[in-house]
Write a protein that binds this DNA or RNA. Structure first.
Lengths: 218, 218
DNA sequence: TATATTTTTTAGTTTTGTCTAAAATTTAAA
DNA sequence: TTTAAATTTTAGACAAAACTAAAAAATATA
């Protein structure tokens, strides 16, 4: 499989999780910052290789084979991210781009040995689940911080937005995976939250809260 | 720089070390298992980018810029090999092909962090030197085992042939980097050697001895 | 339901890196 | 030193993956 084919598969996989329905040509084009015509060309190619179900004008979905391939790419991406953060000490906002390259390295043995070396992690540095060697994914129960109500407490288990900008903001505020976040009050006008992280109190906007995954606790 | 450009640079670099003279189109084509016409095309391209000195029919050599780029690729290749063997526990005969892929990952920060993580190694698992971040190479004094005479002793510090076949043969005989090898006798007819490795005595052909680098000792 | 708008596909180019076949140049041999 | 052989380059073609512009199909609107 070429890099390009792998990138398409991965995109279709992510869109499937996001929208769970048939994926449109335009949705793929937009996410990959390419043209719809390029997407059509590739879909034909992937369809011929039996990686996607594709019917003209009807959108695409992954075949079992395509789904498995996509999961293996995601697995590689996320395991490399863990390596970069845990072993090489990269900040969590810098690993995505490097992992985008590393995910295309071809060697099943390599990725399984890496998995073992990292102690079979189940989540990447942003809290996203890592498919195991068979493609199985253990999803942990989580919800957006914005869904909690006053006086509820959650443990930060993931981020929805993984942009460097957002992650650096979290660093600045001292919010990391594992942080205990208590909702002190909620402003009904703009849905901003007064929260307590460890010992520090401060206010965050709804936009921030809607991009933080927590596991309800206490 | 594209993968292909990087592979050409690397090949020219290796041929330069091997032949130290102007490198011919055919020599490159042969080593890369491609056609001379393809090589010519690429040489023009590399020349335009100021990575090689190239004059029609006169062969090529690396410019300073090309030499530096080539060394950085070799650096990446060899550091990844160390990672695979030291950290992921790969056998030394399996790392080359994976490193051929990993050497193209683009991130200076990544490779420098990897270097640090591995404790700034100076040789790869086959005893080849690893250029540092500035491209400097510390070459250790070494000679072929076949150049030693009766009763001399050497420490194995590298292999000339890095084929899986040869490396597995060495594994089987218990010869590894660091092994102490004593020449008990040399057969003048075929230049085969009776040697002692650790406690074991056995005979090796001249071909084997001519592919083992040692550092004279005792 | 007819028409307008949006989405998707097709057709035809472009770029990168390869190839074959033929021409040009260099090197070796007679 | 002329000819033969080997090497290298040029010219033209091809596949992959992208693009633009135009046509076709689906969807939304009046």
């Amino acid at each position: 499989m070429t890099f390009s084919e792998e990138n398409y598969l991965k995109t279709i996989y992510h869109l499937t999780n996001l929208l769970d329905s048939e994926i449109s040509t335009n949705a793929i084009a937009e996410r990959m910052e390419t043209k719809a015509s390029s997407v059509t060309d590739m879909l034909k190619k992937l369809s011929e290789k039996d990686l996607v179900h594709y019917k003209k004008y009807q959108g695409v979905s992954l075949t079992d084979k395509g789904m498995h391939s996509a999961k293996m790419i995601v697995r590689k991406h996320r395991l490399w991210e863990v390596f970069l953060v845990d072993k090489l000490d990269f900040p969590w906002d810098e690993v995505h781009d490097i992992a985008e390259q590393l995910e295309h390295i071809k060697s099943e043995k390599l990725i399984n040995k890496l998995d073992e070396y990292l102690n079979f992690p189940t989540e990447d540095p942003h809290g996203d689940p890592i498919p195991n060697a068979n493609g199985q994914i253990v999803t942990i129960e989580k919800q957006l911080l914005s869904e909690l109500t006053e006086n509820q407490t959650g443990i930060c288990v993931g981020v929805k937005d993984t942009s460097s900008e957002f992650l650096k903001y979290l660093d600045k505020q001292g919010i990391a995976l594992g942080s205990k976040i208590e909702i002190l009050s909620k402003e009904s006008f703009d849905l901003s939250l007064k929260i307590k992280v460890e010992t520090k109190d401060f206010t965050i906007s709804n936009k921030i809260a809607a991009n933080l995954f927590v596991k309800k606790s206490k």
